[in-house]
Structure formats: structure tokens, C-alpha cells
Write a protein that binds this DNA or RNA. Sequence first.
DNA 1: ATCGTTCATCGTAAATATACGATAAAGGAG
DNA 2: CTCCTTTATCGTATATTTACGATGAACGAT
Lengths: 105, 105
Amino acid sequence: MAQSKKNEFTQEDIWLADVAKALSHPARVRILKILNDMSTCMVGNLVNKLPLAQATVSQHLKELKRVGLIHGEIEGPKICYCVNSKALSKAKNALDNLFSKMGCC
Amino acid sequence: MAQSKKNEFTQEDIWLADVAKALSHPARVRILKILNDMSTCMVGNLVNKLPLAQATVSQHLKELKRVGLIHGEIEGPKICYCVNSKALSKAKNALDNLFSKMGCC
DNA sequence: ATCGTTCATCGTAAATATACGATAAAGGAG
DNA sequence: CTCCTTTATCGTATATTTACGATGAACGAT
């Protein structure tokens, strides 16, 4: 709880900012929504639903993977992406906590 | 609910990504936490608590203002920043919705 | 072994973000 | 008015992000 004065940021704040960064592009928001809605989740499917080239979609998937919000499983030549519900709920809790209070001057 | 196929992103997704972008830096996470915890919220106070120059803090405040998460009120020569609880709860709801389901393959 | 499919990675160009010192603007104090 | 304080903005350097085509790697099918 105790925040440092003028020092570096806490790991918690850095992590939360990192998760937010992963959500900070419409394509990645959309990808998460699609993965929430579908059980089939090949990359090709996502590319068809996004106004972006395949390489770019792959790059966005990498960013979501980086923070652990999704992961992919190899199925033959295809890769099935799905959300990591554990990471999602951890992020949800942290964000809820950030948004909980409302002290205003 | 119905998502377009290959078209541009929805305004909802763009907005949500924009809010996430505002949270995507440790300094801005910290600023929100400080504003949640304190009632006194001058910029000088924030500068003292962050490992950043005044100009940089001002820039981060501008970004939080841009998406409406905070706003400032002029009090003489000082400016009192506070969180916009309405915007915070709207963002919280949208993020909760994004994180709610957990279909996995 | 040679395709065709699927996806990641490389290379790269353009745009955006981050940081800081310097400066401007606005208001209170003397 | 002239200072001093407080905060925003400007100018700028550096780093990161975003996007795409091209290429590479992995696999199933023929």
C-alpha cells in the first residue's frame, strides 16, 4: 500500500500499465472480444475479421501473448488461440481496484 | 453486438483502446492511484511523488484529461486535479464486459 | 520430395510516445 | 507594476509502435 516518494514505479504499477498497453489498440480489443465469443480461433479467422494484413495481426497477437492475456496451441499447421482466463481475471481485479475509489476535490 | 467483417473498428472498440492507452504508462497508473487516495491534488504534489520532471507530469495529466478520466479545477495559481468518477465507472464497466466471458479452446 | 496452407519473423518506413529544459501564461503577494 | 509561484506549452531528441510485403518454418497431402 505504501507508495514510495520520488523513486521508481512499483512492479504492480508497471505490470498494470503493461496490461493496459496490451489493450491499447482497437485491433487487440477486437481480438479479445472475438476470442471471447468464438471457440474456433485460428489466426486466419482473425485476419478475415480484421482490416489488417496477416503479419500485422500476428504482431498484435504477439503483444497479447506477451502479457499472458492469450495463448496459442498448435494444431497441425494451424494455431488455435484462446484467452487465458486466469490472466484476464487477474487484470480485471487490478483494474477494478484502480477504479474502485472516487475521492474528488 | 454484431461485429463487422473486414471493416474498420467500431467506435466502442476505439474508445476502449483509447482508455486503455491512457492507462498504459506506470506514471499515469500511479497518478490515478494518488488521486484516488488524496483529496489534495495539486500538480506540484504529484510532481513530488513521481520520478519525472514537471513538464513530463503535465504531459501525462494531459493524456488522462484527453480521455476524460480526470479533470482539473483552477484554484488561484494552482490547479486541483481529481478523478472523474463517472468516466471511471464507464471504463470499468466496459473492461468488465471485455473480461467477463472465458471461452477457451 | 514437392506442393499448398498456415502462421511467425524479418526488414523497414512512417507515425506516435516519452522525456526534459526552456519559455510562456496566469494569478497572488508585496 | 514587479516579483514569485504554479502549471501548461514549445521545441526537440530518442525510443517505441504500427503497418506491410517478403521470406522462412512447420505441417499435411499428394
